Amino acid sequence: MSKAPASASKSATESAVHHGVDHSQELGHGNSPAAWTCVIVMLVGALVCSIAFVIANTPIFIAGAAVMVVGLILGYVMRKAGYGVEGSKLKSTGH
Rank of each mutant, 00 (worst) to 15 (best):
E26D: 08
S15C: 00
A4P: 04
G75W: 01
S9W: 03
S15N: 07
S2A: 10
I40M: 06
S88D: 15
A66G: 13
V39T: 10
S24R: 03
I55N: 01
L74H: 04
G30L: 05
I62S: 05
M1S: 11
T93N: 08
I40S: 10
I62L: 05
V41T: 09
H18G: 00
R79E: 04
A16F: 08
F53Q: 15
H23S: 08
E26L: 02
C38T: 01
W36P: 02
V77M: 06
L72G: 15
L72T: 14
H95T: 07
V48Q: 12
G71I: 05
F61K: 01
L74D: 05
G71P: 05
K10T: 13
V77S: 06
G75L: 09
S32K: 06
Y83L: 07
V69K: 06
M68N: 07
V21G: 09
K10A: 14
L74Y: 06
T58I: 09
D22M: 08
E26S: 12
G28K: 07
G82L: 13
T93M: 15
K10N: 14
E86S: 11
T58N: 00
A4S: 09
A81F: 02
Y76A: 10
A35E: 06
D22I: 13
A4W: 05
A12W: 00
P33A: 03
K80H: 04
G30E: 03
K3E: 09
K10D: 15
L74C: 02
E26P: 13
S24E: 13
V54K: 13
F61Q: 02
N31T: 14
H19L: 15
A16Q: 03
S88V: 15
I73G: 05
P59N: 11
